[in-house]
Design a protein around this nucleic acid. Structure first.
Length: 155
DNA sequence: GCCAACGTTGGC
DNA sequence: GCCAACGTTGGC
């Protein structure tokens, strides 16, 4: 089993929305980047754990922990009428984009801020993709060591 | 709102 | 296959 970090803009879908969702579960729809798509489709499996990260907001950071309850499957938002994620290049019979289902395991309150993570950028989190300059990927792998270290920051 | 970084597109 | 133009991301 593996660990991940999933970014979302809280204005669009934040940890509070996940907490309110049916069975605290949501489909991680709308990823439209090929590198991230490949991870959703091929690598992320049921049973994996992920940090739920808030981006593009006043206080970016890790807002919760989610469990993957369904691995990669076609993202229906690409062909759903009226969807903001509509993509004509991804018809139902030839899906281009993929999603996974995640269930809220634990909210992190207060949120573990990006600044707090960054303060370890020269140490335990030196290789963390999130902290890399120019990183924009909305799905990134997290190593077991990074995962454990970040959990220790939450206590 | 600014701007650096990076992905995608499309002409050649 | 190259690369300029353009769009998007996301912290600040």
């Amino acid at each position: 089993m593996r660990y991940w970090l999933l970014k979302s803009e809280p204005d669009t879908f934040g940890i509070a929305d996940l907490a309110k969702a049916k069975a605290s579960t949501t489909s991680w729809e709308g990823v439209r980047n090929f590198q991230a798509r490949n991870m959703l489709r091929d690598e992320i499996k049921a049973g994996d754990l992920a940090f739920f990260y808030h981006s593009s907001c006043p206080e970016p950071g890790i807002a919760g922990i989610v469990e993957v309850v369904r691995g990669g499957y076609p993202d229906a938002s690409a062909w759903r009428r009226g969807s903001p994620y509509l993509d004509a290049k991804s018809p139902q019979n030839k899906p281009l984009w993929y999603t996974v289902d995640v269930r809220l395991q634990q909210r992190i309150e207060p949120l573990l801020s990006l600044a707090a993570l960054r303060s370890h950028a020269d140490g335990a989190l030196a290789d963390m993709l999130l902290l890399r300059r120019g990183n924009r990927l909305s799905v990134t792998p997290v190593s077991a060591a990074q995962w454990r270290f970040i959990l220790s920051l939450m206590r």
